[in-house]
Amino acid sequence: MNIKVNNESLEYELLRKGDSYLLSYQDSSLPFQVFRYGNDYLVLNIEDNTAIVLDVYKAKNKIVIWAEDEEFIIEEISENETLSSHEVIENNIKSPMPGIIKEIKFMENDIVKKGDTVVVLESMKVLNELKSSVNGCIKKIYIEKGAQVGPLELLVEIEPKED
């Protein structure tokens, strides 16, 4: 099993034998038993013959356990935590679909900011704002107002610039 305790991940193995547990963690293997008293839990370390009472808060994906002067925040490691989407940023403006160029908002050599609308393309009754995905400078404009364009045509070339 893989969990995170106080933000550090750790690995262990746990076997259940009747009402007792056998925990293998790091180099040792120890037997335990758990009893519940109301909202408190008593955990017995059978080998050491020591017992400790723990207080617990349970949330959906997280459990907080207090044991004497220690506090443990235990979370399951979710798989999607390691996933992140990688997006390749396209600098240039291409037509996402066929349509008619309604408006070109910049001229060559103009500076554009990320999110600026560069071209408005009308297609299937909808005015689509094609935005720059980078900060940069308009290098070349391949179309003019009123032009009919096909899908994935290069419309405007943008040279990305830092800041």
């Binding site: 679909m97 066929p98 299937m124 009754k125 909808v126 096909g150 899908p151």
Partner: peptide, 9 residues
């Protein structure tokens, strides 16, 4: 939604 794309492609 205004519809499905049309055209030869």
């Amino acid at each position: 939604i205004t519809g499905f794309i049309i055209g030869k492609k």
